[in-house]
Design a protein around this nucleic acid. Structure first.
Lengths: 301, 301
DNA sequence: TTAAGCGTTGCATTCAGTGCAACAATTTTG
DNA sequence: CAAAATTGTTGCACTGAATGCAACGCTTAA
């Protein structure tokens, strides 16, 4: 076992003060207490630490060694406190985010980039994958914050904010499957489609739509990669269904076109920002969440 | 103030055990105690150290920092204990002395015997061998104090005292090689000689003499044992060269004769008392050194 | 819904740590 | 030369902090 800090303090003070009584005064204790503290230390270390003389106390060699140890330990403690301070003042910190596939480009280039500029000492850990994987990561505390599409209601998750982001038909602009105006459900059965897997929220929403609207899409490709979906469309092999913000860059660049589906509430998936129910988050995460939440609400408008 | 060791132990155990209850079992405490110990730590450091979850506890970032601190501190403590052990063993158990071969009889029967009577709680460890071995032993901290013949200058050694002890010719009194008066160099070439090895200071001095005075001794025996040299002479097989004090007992008993060499500064070797440069010696060694030094100075007279 | 397991809290108890006073030993002082 | 003063230490009564016990709130698994 380690020696008691009190004992070491008594020992240290006795040596710097020169006498046990002076140390007792300085510490606001009784000489007997200081004496016993040192004696306890000596018993624990099985060594004489001070030489008791007439004019006070002097350190033995072992005492000098212990003094050195105490000083070093004190330095370690100071370092720890400063590290801890840095942590609580958010001069440092690490936030782990579970991010749905589609958010990588959009979010890391807007919210996270800005937050990172404002708080350069905070580092991020991005965990990218399907909606199911993201919720699992948050539930099992592998990530502080989750952001995913169409998160299933879950008692263990606390949905902080959400935004309606319906699915839109995405096609190559000027390609074989390009068309103007709103898309009709019939197109899904006739045109070649590429979809995300079921584990992804987008895939789950599509499966729901098939069931509720009674159609069967002509799925020629199913993948876990949004990049693969984009490549599918860019190659003019068919169409896909995605939330519009996922392909915002391409639409702006004029390479892809997004068409709303002409059915009320079609693909009414939501983007959800969530944490684990009841989890106390680090300060860095607590500050990041409002920023992400605001950005999400902005998507609603 | 430093945190209590108990608290840190509770904290550390809780994290390694995974749950507070497991830690309580392991430490033989109640879960409440462990919980409170950690809470106290958190209060003192004003930081959350663990995340309380369903399946136990997990360290926060601050917790990881504290864990690192605890581990480092534990290492410091271990180092201190080992230093203390070494110190107490030196003090009460062993002042380690590296003793040149020739000093065994003389010194262990005078200085050491007296010192041992005055300080019965101190025991000695005598490391006997050649001069080179002795200096190495001191340099590498295998011995506290070294005493040897013809120690070469060495920046890592601190020569505390030295005494001129020229070599003398030693022969069997009344034997075939006995003679009166001073010895001449020519005798070394004509008479059978036994010498110490080069590693011994005596051997090195003899080799120097051969080079500087231009003769070649008729060495019929080279050994690392002074007892063997004495036996060589006692058996009347020839002569040897040794510092006089090595054979002081035999000369006093009248069995051997020592003759000075009739050449100025011949075999002007020195006996040196030395410690490692910059070494902080245990108290016992610090007390022994003056005694040995006095004895050495007495040899000069 | 029930059961089990987690960490936490309230309360009575205990024991280690503390203060007070007296003591032995030494130096300083009258 | 002896008394006073100052040193560190020890005996004893006491206080307060740490502990154990039991109950609680909460979450998860069956």
């Amino acid at each position: 076992m380690q020696p008691e800090p009190k004992h070491i303090l008594s020992f240290k003070t006795a040596l710097t003060a020169g006498t046990i009584r002076a140390a007792a005064d300085q510490l606001g204790l009784e000489p007997s207490t200081v004496s016993r503290n040192i004696a306890s230390l000596e018993k624990q270390l099985a060594t004489a630490l001070i030489e008791r003389g007439r004019k006070g106390v002097m350190p033995t060699e072992a005492g000098l060694l212990l003094l050195d140890y105490a000083q070093r330990q004190s330095g370690e403690m100071e370092a720890l406190r400063s590290q801890l301070d840095a942590l609580t003042n958010m001069k440092r910190g690490a936030v782990s985010i579970a991010l749905g596939e589609g958010f990588v480009g959009d979010f890391s280039q807007s919210v996270l980039a800005k937050f990172s500029r404002d708080h350069p000492e905070i580092s991020f850990s991005l965990n990218v994958g399907s909606t199911d994987q993201m919720t699992d990561a948050v539930i099992e505390d592998r990530a502080h914050i989750g952001l995913a599409y169409d998160v299933a209601p879950n008692a263990r998750l606390n949905i902080i904010a959400h935004a309606d982001r319906p699915l839109v038909v995405v096609c190559q602009k000027g390609g074989k499957f390009d068309a103007a105006g709103e898309a009709r459900i019939a197109e899904f059965s006739s045109l070649p489609c590429a979809f995300l897997n079921k584990g992804y929220g987008v895939g789950a929403v599509i499966a729901d739509m098939e069931a509720s609207h009674g159609f069967r899409a002509r799925a020629v490709m199913e993948t876990g990669s949004i990049a693969a979906l984009k490549a599918f469309v860019r190659s003019d092999l068919g169409i896909t269904l995605l939330p519009e913000f996922v392909v915002a860059d391409e639409i702006k660049a004029g390479t892809l076109r997004a068409r709303k589906v002409a059915v009320l509430n079609f693909g009414c998936g939501k983007v959800s920002l969530f944490v684990r129910q009841g989890r106390r988050l680090p300060l860095a995460a607590q500050k990041l969440i409002p920023a992400m939440s605001r950005s999400l609400v902005a998507l609603n408008g």
